[in-house]
Design a binder for these strands. Structure first.
Lengths: 344, 344
DNA sequence: ATCTGGCACTCGGGCGTTCAGAGTGCCAAG
DNA sequence: CTTGGCACTCTGAACGCCCGAGTGCCAGAT
């Protein structure tokens, strides 16, 4: 275990930290002289050069050309994030601003919309917020509405305030009494339950109805289960794409695949889905499975109304990002959204 | 009236048309020689040069530098769109592809999502689709659900399949009978009516209830009217932002304000809102009120299930776009979406 | 009156050269 | 192990050059 890290004494780590900080600030390769000038390392440039050579040897930094400064590699950022950086807490005014900004929300859509904008603004990067997921939330109410003799509108309302509706084509005419009966029984069985648990709880239901009504009951239930299970309905919202213009100098090349990725809800969902349930997840450059995002980093975290997370949110930016600041913003926003959800 | 146009005989118009077409194709200023080579105009480059000088005099084209080719101005594109170009119909295979692509949609969200992606793909530009607007559609059903003694969930279902929900805090406990009564009366009065008409039709309603119930009734109705009126809930969906990378050579400058504009739902809504109700609207460059989009053009059109439009959709691209093709795609997509909506 | 070929002129952009500055690696001395 | 010194490398900006595309204008042809 000590094998690889043995090489890196404290000063080398300090040098790496300084390189990351400077590079993030200036966006330019950083040389030995600039380093000792801007951080008081207490040693000479020559010494720093030796350390840099060692760091490069180990693959933490790299120089674009001979006689240019050094740039951190993905591995360098990784070490920085894991060992060298602290999450930077938001300042009190910032926290107040966050709270104030989120407090005006009127419904779930609005909460998510405000959150994603806020996050984009705070981090000056691209923000992604997943809607509170169906699978984690519970049923608040299920409504059945007769629209036509053989058409029923199914409306599912969750505790997170989300509403899903489906049109059900029934095999035959549906009487109002049957509908009322079904509605009562479905709600009795499902209300307050977690969505994935509902099918198991209701599978005896058709047996309680008269044979003639059973086809209708099973049809409605099938649609309900479908709605419950439907992963594809997981929605996300994003904001801050204009911040992509600050990505780098070599423009169109970097930005195009990212824009493409951002349009693929599936990609974003998988991205957020890989977030660890507890704690913050940071993925850097090549660590990201999706190719188009290989030159970006993703900072994501779960948020939720209680102590468990119902959805994820995060930020996508260049690997050269301010990790402590970004992580601080992401964590703070996630907390406040959680509180807002808990209150409503 | 003939005053200004007298200058432009048929050949000059043909030259303008050729310039637009070539410039759109090559993205480079087009000179007199290239023009006669690629279009058989039957005259010499020198003649074309004279015509170009005249066109420039009139402000239809402009040259970036002495001794460069000509580029159409906004005014030139305007003339091209109004007088020189035909909407290019989709080919039969294209139409089939459109239909096929849209036919799989399962609900309104899906229809809109598919439409916007399709449009972005067809035009290789940024597509915008507005959800069928509340104000144009009619009430299919209004559902009231008691969630807690003094909390009622209001669900509004429109004929376009859209569902809006609101939580209502009532001044006192709400009995199930009252709720059922209210539900019946509200639906009796509102079902099938256009949304903006509903408040007028229901304003006598509180008088029909007992005095004790009236506060509850008015509260619920107020929320309902709010929901009906709420313009801010008009939603849009967009796709194809990755196509922005093909905008031009002078990158970040052009793209940033556009990305910013695209994130402002308000801007996009106003943009679509300015679309004429009938026919297609093309706005070019400076004609667009919003500054950030001054170097883009917008092609938009209304779509709807019947003969009247319930919402708008459109495409945003560089002023140098293939107008006939874009207009053809926009028109075709709008038609098919209308049909899909009518069927469902 | 209109078109055309010819001609002189302009200007942008590509290309090679030069030059300064930043940064390095290495070495020998502290 | 650190440090100052030194020679070396390489990029990128600046400069000048020239080619070619394109123009405007004019005089002659139709």
């Amino acid at each position: 275990m000590a094998g690889e890290v043995r090489q890196l004494d404290d000063r080398k780590l300090a040098v790496l930290r300084a390189i990351v900080q400077d590079y993030v600030g200036t966006e330019e390769p950083v040389g030995s002289k600039a380093l000792v000038d801007r951080h008081n390392l207490g040693v000479s440039p020559a010494t720093v050069r030796n350390d840099m050579a060692a760091l490069e040897e180990e693959g933490y930094i790299h120089q674009p050309h001979t006689s240019a400064g050094r740039i951190p590699t993905d591995k360098g950022y990784r070490l920085f994030v894991d060992k060298l950086a602290e999450v930077k807490p938001m300042s009190a005014p910032e926290r107040r601003a966050i709270r104030h900004f989120l407090d005006g929300a009127v419904d779930l859509d609005d909460v998510v919309a405000r959150t994603v904008r806020l996050l984009a603004q705070l981090t000056r990067q691209v923000a992604v917020v997943q809607y509170p997921s169906l699978s984690r939330s519970t049923v608040r109410h299920i409504e059945l509405v007769a629209l036509a003799p053989a058409k029923v509108m199914l409306v599912l309302i969750t505790n997170t305030g989300r509403v899903e509706q489906r049109l059900v084509d029934c095999p035959g005419t549906v009487g109002e009494t049957l509908l009322a009966d079904l509605r009562a029984r479905v709600n009795a069985g499902a209300a307050g339950q977690r969505l994935p648990d509902v099918p198991g709880l209701l599978d005896e239901l058709p047996a309680l109805f008269e044979a003639a009504d059973r086809p209708t009951v099973t049809t409605v239930l099938a649609t309900l289960f479908e709605t419950l299970a439907e992963q594809s309905e997981e929605r996300i919202m994003l904001a801050g794409t204009a911040n992509l213009t600050r990505f780098g100098h070599d423009f169109p090349l970097t930005i195009q695949p990212v824009l493409e990725a951002l349009e693929e809800q599936v990609v974003l969902l998988r991205l957020l889905g890989e977030t660890a349930d507890a704690g913050m997840t940071v993925r850097i450059g090549r660590e990201i499975a999706y190719e188009g995002l290989n030159s970006t980093s993703v900072v994501s975290v779960g948020y939720g109304s209680g102590d468990e997370s119902v959805a994820k949110l995060g930020v996508i930016g260049p690997t050269r990002m301010d990790y402590p600041g970004t992580m601080g913003a992401v964590r703070a926003v996630a907390r406040y959204v959680g509180q807002i959800l808990a209150e409503s």
